[in-house]
Amino acid sequence: MRGSAVGTAVALAAGTLLTAAMTTASASPPTTATTPVAAAPAQPVLVDCFFHRTIRPNDFILACGDGNSRLTGLHWTEWGPDGAKAIGVNMVNDCKPYCAAGTFRSYPVVIRLSGEQPWKKHPRFERYTNISLTYTGARPEAFGQVVTYPLWD
């Protein structure tokens, strides 16, 4: 009997302290800032094949339909409203003799993202509209040294 009386007393004391703390906090006058605080601009996003937004991804699929071209090992050196830049590897299926039996080959690239515009699906987000790959050595057959693609909206 004595143990339950002590427990009840502790519970009542804790409740009283909590109520006092909440009353004091809610009774305080609101504070006002003397200097307006500007929100930092949101970083542009990269929209992937599944219409998910990412920032500085490690990997990115370029060929959404079959996955035969993707970027891996991305190391971003820039990311902002004036564009983004990374180095990485473009893994491309040579599709020889056909894509299901082809071999993925790796090609070092410099990646640049540009053309920030509001994203139609979520207009409060700016998204990159173009991706440009510059092959720094060998490149896939029939590819130019620089290849630019539009990105998904």
Results as ranks from 00 to 15, higher is better:
P81D: 01
I111V: 13
P140F: 01
T16V: 15
T19N: 13
D66W: 04
A21W: 13
A25N: 12
A27S: 14
P118I: 08
T77F: 08
P108R: 05
I131F: 10
R53Y: 00
A38M: 12
G80R: 10
A100G: 13
V37I: 11
P118S: 03
K85W: 01
T129A: 08
C49Q: 04
A38I: 11
A38E: 08
H122P: 01
P29D: 11
E141M: 06
E78N: 15
P123E: 00
T129Q: 02
A33V: 05
H122F: 06
S106M: 04
T16N: 14
E116R: 07
S26R: 14
S114N: 08
D94Y: 01
I61H: 13
V92K: 06
P140L: 05
R124L: 08
E78A: 15
D66I: 08
G15M: 00
G83P: 02
E78R: 14
F60L: 07
C99I: 10
D94I: 04
P123L: 05
T24Y: 15
C95D: 00
L12M: 04
W76I: 11
V45M: 08
S114G: 06
T103D: 03
V37M: 14
A84I: 02
I131M: 03
W76P: 03
V110I: 12
A25L: 14
D82Y: 06
L17T: 09
A11G: 03
L12Q: 00
I61V: 15
S28M: 13
P30S: 07
E78K: 15
E126F: 00
M91I: 07
T31Y: 11
A101G: 00
T35H: 09
N58P: 13
A86K: 07
A25Q: 13
D59H: 02
T77S: 14
N93E: 03
L71S: 06
A63I: 07
E126P: 05
N68R: 12
V89Y: 00
R124V: 13
P123K: 06
T72S: 05
A40V: 08
P41S: 04
F104A: 02
A63S: 15
G67S: 06
A13Q: 09
V110W: 02
H75C: 10
T24Q: 14
P108I: 02
T136V: 04
A63H: 11
